[in-house]
Nucleic acid binder design. Structure first.
Length: 769
RNA sequence: GCGGGGUUAGCUCAGCGGUAGAGCAUCUGCUUUACACGCAGGGGGUCGUGGGUUCGAAUCCCUCACCCCGCACCA
């Protein structure tokens, strides 16, 4: 059996490794470790024995969560509680030597066979005369006492009478201890009724027993009522069977002493937990922590290093003892229980480094910087690593924990085979590429859920194609490669070039900031936005006239190539962590300076690249281009139709600038001619952008009603905006209390609105004649 | 019951005190020689409810409603 499990482990371990490799995880695979490797097993034994000797591990009889399907005890956090529609059975227990009957309520009638008392609240006047008497336990020959218990019984609930089954319920177990009640086990480890349940029921499984008990009670007229009842039922986290509370001898860790320092390092910030919203969850759990049941009745795992002797002696030791220290007998039996898998996982940060030896690896790699994992194993793994790390090395195993969300389907539903909404990463990699998947995951990690939608992956696969094509375009023009590229002298650059470098610089700063804040979504979004909508949509188009030689001289062309190369180089490096494969490929095509983009420097913002002036002026040009494009489409003109555009610019220097950059307007807005400060036809379309008067001479064309309405609507909208700004500026409180910059902003806005309105009104009434 | 998160465009989500954003979807036009996995342009939101703070609130505070996730309880 164990050999088969090893086979399974090989299969699945390899699958996981393949998934990681194909996603481009750049790990040192020679250091791959498994918790059952010998080195780690030694660490496990060492920790176990140490904690045992300190009294932090103990073996005792206790009420544990038992999974009858798995045949093992499980820990509290492996139990999943689900609200379940069940039934509440009201059963009459006849009082001995009395006409009366006590009615108890239960959701698990089969457990009544193991009742050893019924309890009422000590202050409950209804039952005071009965306390101390006995009831005849139906379906059995036993009589059990009527006792009082203030902790167990809520007189308000049900009939105020509680049946006590100390062997099969956690609260009843405790009540049984308080009142020194006997415990009768009526359900065994397999979920079958024991002989103690009586001849009628012994051998039935617990579900069949429930039906049989209810029928038997009914036939004796003792079943008073059955009502629908919603309550939470405990299920096994692994196999989904209903968990059976069971008294059993198990091994436990006394966690409280370990939890205190683990709380302290987080409270003091020595270990940072991100996002911060998880802090209170962590505190809440650690402050209310219960002993951890670590023994499992399974075949697979670290076998507990304890040996038993027939004489009753137990030896806990890292290595098998030769003989019993008490009676010298050498026929010792090792504990057959194995450890909870999370026990060895808790030691991972140092057990993988050769601990307890003080190895060089331990020195170099412990503690580590950041742990990134899913929030679902915060308690299972993260908290326990912190506890064990502090206890055994003196320092927490990492300085920061980043908890990422869990991948769901596109509607936020948990992926499951039965829902049929599982997305296999390898299938996605085959279909869309690892880069697209990684980018999508990065951009979606903003919250607790990662709603992975195919449409989303498709979109970012298109982005990868876009990057490919943009680089292809660059390579058509670039002869020089990255290795021999001359540095760019900023003074030689034109406005468009200074603009794109400034925009890239802003993006670079924002990406770096987002990454240091663990906002992978913001970082990915920012690169996407820059690369596609600024670099491709605008810069490449604006550089085409120069690159193709239609505008400017050879020197200008060379410069444009160098800028193109520079922007691509930086963009690819910025993108590399998100899309490692395509960026490596393209970077090499550009003539890499390093053997791999992986080891190239990650771009940092440089103040010298900032250029607010270039950004402002290019933005104005973009607005003019967009205006022309919009009007062209709305007025029903074809892309090939060309118009004359005139700009009225009072400032001499500005006029010169727009004159020399008129080619941008000409090409991108597809104009026939751009003039500055010349007269235009009376029927030209008028507007105003950033203080520039704009006039476009469309060919004579009768405007449709719709187009006339459009002009009217634009004017109406502007009038509303203007009215709103005026109200604001007339408000003395606003002008008095708002920051000066904000007030100025509104004043500028009013100015701009007034200028536009004046121009647009000239268009009103149609310009067809 | 305790704790946390959420409610923003058709869908999935950013934004968290100064004029509502993205991807996808949708509509219109386009063989503009990098890309139709594209280009250009557009439409679409009283930012869950009610109140408060503020010159100003999707953004801060309170109320309520609904949803999700932990934990505890459930005779």
């Amino acid at each position: 059996f164990v050999a088969k499990v090893w086979e399974w482990k090989e299969d699945h371990g390899n699958q996981i490794k393949e998934q990681l490799e194909r996603l481009g995880a750049s790990c040192d695979w020679t250091r791959a470790r498994f918790t059952l490797d010998e080195g780690l097993s030694r660490a496990v034994r060492h920790v176990f024995v140490t904690l045992y000797n300190e009294g932090l591990i103990y073996r005792d009889l206790a009420m544990v969560n038992w999974c009858p399907r798995c045949g093992t005890a499980i820990s509290d956090i492996e139990v999943e509680y689900k609200d379940t529609e069940g039934k509440l059975y009201l059963i009459d227990y006849p009082v001995v030597g009395d006409e009366r009957r006590l009615t108890v309520a239960t959701t698990r009638p089969e457990t009544m066979l193991g009742d050893t008392a019924v309890a009422v609240h000590p202050d409950d006047v209804r039952y005071q005369s009965l306390v101390g008497k006995q009831v005849a336990l139906p379906l059995t020959s036993r009589t059990i006492p009527i006792i009082t218990d203030a902790i167990l019984v809520d007189p308000e609930f049900g009939t105020g009478v509680v049946k006590i089954t100390p062997a099969h319920d956690k609260n009843d177990y405790e009540a049984g201890m308080r009142n020194e009640l006997p415990r009768i086990q009526v359900i065994d480890e397999a979920g079958m009724m024991t002989d103690a349940a009586g001849a009628l029921f012994a051998g039935l499984d617990r579900d069949a027993a429930r039906i049989a008990v209810v029928e038997a009670l009914q036939s004796q007229g003792l079943l008073r009522e059955v009502k629908a009842h919603q309550h939470s039922v405990a299920y096994c986290g692994k196999c989904d069977a209903v968990v059976e509370p069971m008294i059993s001898r198990q091994w436990f860790v006394r966690v409280e002493a370990l939890a205190q320092p683990a709380l302290e390092v987080v409270r003091s910030g020595r270990v940072e937990v991100l996002p911060e919203s998880w802090l209170s969850t962590y505190y809440n759990w650690m402050e209310n922590i219960h002993d951890w049941c670590i023994s499992r009745q399974l075949w697979w795992g670290h076998r507990i290093p304890a040996w038993y002797c027939d004489c009753g002696e137990m030896i806990v030791s890292e290595e098998p003892p030769a003989s019993c220290p008490s009676c010298s007998q050498d026929t010792l039996r090792q504990e057959t229980d194995v450890l909870d898998t999370w026990f060895s996982s808790a030691l991972w940060p140092f057990s993988t480094m050769g601990w307890p030896e003080k190895t060089a690896d331990l020195q170099a790699f412990y503690p580590t910087d950041t742990l990134i994992t899913g929030f679902d194993i915060l308690f299972f793994w993260v908290a326990r690593m912190i506890m064990m790390g502090i206890r055994f090395t003196g320092v927490p195993p990492f300085r920061r924990v980043f908890l990422n969300g869990l991948v769901r389907d596109e509607h936020g539903q948990k992926m499951s085979k039965s829902r049929g909404n599982v997305i296999d990463p390898l299938v996605i990699v085959d279909e869309y590429g690892a880069d697209a998947l990684r980018f999508t995951l990065a951009i979606l990690t903003s919250g607790r859920d990662i709603p992975l939608a195919r449409s989303r992956i498709e979109g970012y696969a298109a982005f990868a194609t876009k990057i490919w094509n943009a680089t292809r375009f660059a390579l058509m023009h670039i002869e020089q490669d990255l290795q021999s590229a001359k540095p760019i002298l900023r003074d030689e650059l034109n406005a468009v070039e200074r603009w794109i470098l400034s925009r890239l610089n802003t993006a670079t700063a924002e990406v770096n900031r987002a990454l240091s804040n663990f906002r992978f979504d913001e970082a990915a979004n920012r690169i996407y936005q820059f690369f596609w909508h600024e670099f491709c949509d605008w810069y490449i188009e604006m550089s085409k006239p120069v690159l193709s030689g239609r505008h400017g001289d050879r020197a200008a062309q060379e410069k444009a190539k160098r800028v193109l190369l520079e922007v691509l180089d930086r963009s690819l490096r910025l993108l590399h962590p998100f899309m490692p494969f395509i960026t490596e490929e393209l970077w090499q095509k550009l003539g890499a300076r390093e053997p791999s983009i992986m080891i190239a420097n990650y771009p940092l913002a440089e103040e010298i690249l900032e250029d607010a002036g270039a950004e402002a002026v290019i933005q104005t040009i973009q607005q003019i281009i967009t205006l022309v494009r919009t009007l062209r489409l709305e007025r029903g003109f074809a892309p090939k139709d060309r118009f004359r555009l005139n700009l009225t610019i009072p400032d001499q220097r500005d006029a010169q600038f727009f004159q020399s950059n008129a080619y941008l307007l000409l090409e991108l807005a597809r104009l026939s001619v751009v003039t500055i400060n010349e007269s235009v036809r009376d029927d030209a379309y008028r507007d105003s952008i950033d203080g520039l008067e704009i006039a476009i001479e469309f060919p004579e064309k009768v405007l449709t009603e719709e187009q006339v309405e459009r002009v009217a609507r634009d004017i109406e909208k502007l009038e509303q905006d203007l009215a709103a700004t005026e109200v604001q500026l007339e408000n003395e409180k606003f002008v008095g209390r708002a920051p000066a910059a904000v007030v100025q902003q509104v004043r500028d806005k009013r100015q701009d609105l007034m200028a536009r309105l004046e121009k647009l009104r000239q268009n009103a009434g149609g310009n067809a004649s």
